[in-house]
């Protein structure tokens, strides 16, 4: 029995050593590789000055052509829209952005993301290799029930988020494989159409308030950053489009840019294609140039 217990303990020990070593290797890879997504870009970039940072989900990543916006406005902008990101993820992005860089204005896309206060598995997960970063650590502590495991159990954060920061991504990072989208530009165009437009349902009701949005407002105020809200369009097949009116009544300052986009400009019902994004960027510029 004694021999068996020693052997079992040896296996447990080997497992922990492997967990710890894998964690160290993955973390080192992410720390030393070129940024392959926008979260990593924010963690690694310092001393940058931007006139405008666009925050939101894929509806920002796909809709705002920063190069076009820059040429129209003569300003330096960055598109930080992340696929699947909600306001909570945007809050973390904002904290990271302001911790080491300067920004004059933040343009935040609001839509049904107003209903959600939780971090997404898509947005915030990309920050987990940098859990020792103070901003990230605090944010994870405030928002993740399994923070203890994320922070203290070696390799746990990589194991449970394998599709985003697991083996494949670590290998790509190790060989410094260029990402599909350059995070320093951030615009992710969609081309033509994904097929027949299938309308999605916007919420029937609207939340009274969103505490995450309140936090975003406070941080912006504290850092003297101008905060601009806007909403981008949906295709005509979308159900409960009157949600937009409800959102406007809740946040009167929101810039409504939902009109004037025929279905032919959509990649799918929530996302404009490249042509639509060009038009949208121009309209956003026109609507905000006097700000």
């Amino acid at each position: 029995m004694k021999k068996f217990l020693i052997y079992s303990l040896k296996i447990v020990l080997i497992t922990f050593v492997l967990l710890y070593a894998s964690d160290l290797v993955y973390t080192a890879i992410y720390e030393h590789s070129i940024p392959r997504n926008k979260l990593q870009y924010l963690v690694k970039k310092e001393q940058q000055e931007y006139d405008i940072a666009f925050l939101g989900s894929s509806r920002v990543a796909n809709h705002i052509n920063t190069q076009l916006f820059d040429s129209l406005s003569g300003k330096k902008t960055i598109n930080l829209g992340v696929e699947g990101a909600g306001l909570n993820d945007n809050l973390l992005q904002l904290k990271l952005l302001l911790s080491k860089n300067k920004v004059k204005s933040v343009y935040l896309q609001l839509d049904p993301n107003f209903e959600n206060v939780n971090p997404s598995n898509l947005g915030t997960v990309e920050s987990m290799p940098f859990i020792k970063n103070r901003e990230i650590n605090t944010h994870l502590q405030e928002n993740f029930e399994d923070y203890w495991k994320l922070n203290y159990v070696p390799f746990y954060r990589y194991a449970i988020n394998d599709p985003k920061i697991g083996f494949r991504e670590a290998i790509f990072s190790a060989i410094n494989k260029k990402p599909r989208i350059d995070p320093s530009i951030g615009y992710t165009p969609k081309y033509k159409s994904s097929g027949k437009l299938v309308g999605q349902h916007l919420p029937k009701t609207i939340k009274n308030n969103n505490p995450v949005l309140d936090s975003i407002e406070k941080i912006c105020a504290r850092n003297a950053v101008e905060l601009v809200y806007y909403i981008s369009p949906y295709c005509s097949k979308t159900k409960n489009l009157n949600y937009i009116e409800k959102l406007k009544s809740k946040i009167p300052s929101i810039i409504d840019l939902t009109e004037g986009y025929p279905d032919s400009l959509f990649y799918n019902c929530a996302h404009l294609n490249d042509t639509g994004a060009g038009l949208f960027t121009e309209n956003l510029y026109l609507a905000t140039k006097s700000l």
């Binding site: 296996i11 080997i14 497992t15 492997l18 967990l19 894998s22 390799f155 194991a159 449970i160 988020n161 394998d162 599709p163 697991g166 083996f167």
Partner: peptide, 16 residues
């Protein structure tokens, strides 16, 4: 062999 399989178990397993 044991270390190899444990390594694969850790890095290639699905834990989502």
């Amino acid at each position: 062999k044991l270390i190899g399989i444990l390594f694969l178990l850790i890095t290639q397993g699905v834990y989502t």
